[in-house]
Design a protein around this nucleic acid. Structure first.
Lengths: 249, 249
DNA sequence: CGGAACATTGACGATAATCAAAGCGAGTGG
DNA sequence: CCACTCGCTTTGATTATCGTCAATGTTCCG
């Protein structure tokens, strides 16, 4: 199986086949995990570097009143806690939204690989920046777009991110989120999600049946969402020396 | 003047006086900037490392319809584009919300300092993680809290972040945001902000006059907000080797 | 076949947005 | 020193988006 985390990284920087193969090696023992499995509980120590190789997961927080807000979608190739410190404490939990294959890479292996292939380290920084950009765009999305625009924007973003890892065929892809999940991503209620989905369908923008999503009119969706993929695109210029930190062995 | 960026970093990791002094050196030529100055325009190249030494600024995005969403508040000691690549392109603009003192540190100086004092590099990683945690919490805040809770949470967060840099005296601090600014932080309208502020005042939780904010009842505010400062606290454990990347000279 | 999870529908209610006008306050210029 | 202005805040009336509640369908899966 091709390593999707690397493919994400590869989107950011040119990695050679050698580097890809080495990294592949790290992912020997991926394990399968079912849907709705809770993979980290609040307060757990982050002792390694888990990556989703296939399937979808989500990071979320729960409020006192039981409300849930999903703060990131983890698509195939995404790291659980890229933004967190190893040895740190998880303040956000992760749940799988579909059956997943997950690798847990020991930090020591990570280190070694980055040492041998600095480009991988650089690609990881790039990947981290993309994650940040997505976080910002979610704030804008939830803060300033109405329900329909929000949905449309999320679909455009997801479509784009899946394309990077060849997860889209003819504008069609696997979309395992329930309407409850969608509600918790977009800060709305399931009922409202339902109605807005119907609206998107009626306007022939999307088809969504049995977790299979087809973007019928990408332009139209992007138009509604005001979607501009610039924030998801990698920075083309090479990072300066001080960011290319080789890892101490 | 004491370097507030370093004080932020210092909150994360123990830095010695020597390190502080060296960094101080970098900030010789800070410059004063008035309120409502736009410090980066969309598409500008990020050619150096600007830091707010005093005053407040904000990173934001503008939508087609003219709506603005602020995605981060830059308090004294915060870096403009910590999450972005040097040589990258700014997709978010920055505006000062009060008169500011800003230093623009050349990346070369940055590099040199981090090389000499790896702890500073480590502290910067820690700082970056805190920024990410704040971003996540904003998503939760805007997505799942009602107007009053949102306001309360923002005030708690800001209060906490200012405390770190000794910016609070007796629960009182300078709060330069207009109600329009607040609206663009919290994803609401100015009119609604006004009404909710009055509510907080009536319940004797805060006093806000001529940009001076007093937290009259911190417990009460935290209670309303469901505020837990854990996400803002530094990770106590040392970072593992692979994150302590010394910078190549 | 039966049950559970998920999707859909309708009626109603609440929070927040919109529109528009009036008040306030600090700084400016005559 | 006072009137004037401009930006900001406050207020009221009305509207709309979205939430809530509850019931009914549908799909999936053992």
């Amino acid at each position: 199986m091709f390593n999707l985390f690397l493919q994400r990284l590869r989107h950011a920087t040119d990695l050679t086949c050698v580097e890809l193969e080495v990294f592949e090696e790290l992912c020997r023992q991926a394990r399968d995990i079912g849907a709705k499995k809770y993979l980290a509980r609040e307060g757990d120590e982050i002792a390694s570097f888990p990556v989703v190789l296939s399937g979808w997961a989500a990071r979320y927080q729960i409020l006192r009143n039981g409300a849930r807000q999903i703060t990131r979608l983890l698509l195939p190739g995404d790291a659980f806690y890229f933004d967190a410190s190893p040895n740190g404490t998880a303040i956000e939990e992760v749940v799988t939204l579909s059956p997943c294959r997950v690798v847990t890479i020991p930090y020591s292996d990570m280190e070694r690989t980055i040492n041998r292939f600095p480009l991988i380290g650089e690609a990881m920084l790039q990947y981290g920046r993309m994650e940040n950009a997505v976080q910002s765009s979610w704030i804008v999305n939830i803060g300033r777009r109405d329900a329909l625009e929000r949905m449309a924007h999320l679909l455009c973003e997801t479509h784009y991110r899946l394309q990077i890892i060849d997860g889209v065929k003819d504008g069609q892809f696997h979309f395992p989120l329930t309407q409850d999940d969608l509600a918790d991503v977009l800060g709305l209620t399931p009922v409202h999600i339902n109605r807005k989905l119907q609206q998107l369908r009626q306007e022939n923008l999307i088809t969504l049946r049995s977790k299979q999503l087809t973007i019928e009119d990408l332009r139209g969706l992007q138009q509604i969402a005001g979607f501009d993929s610039a924030y998801l695109a990698p920075q083309t210029r090479p990072a300066p020396a001080y960011e290319r930190r080789p890892v101490a062995a």
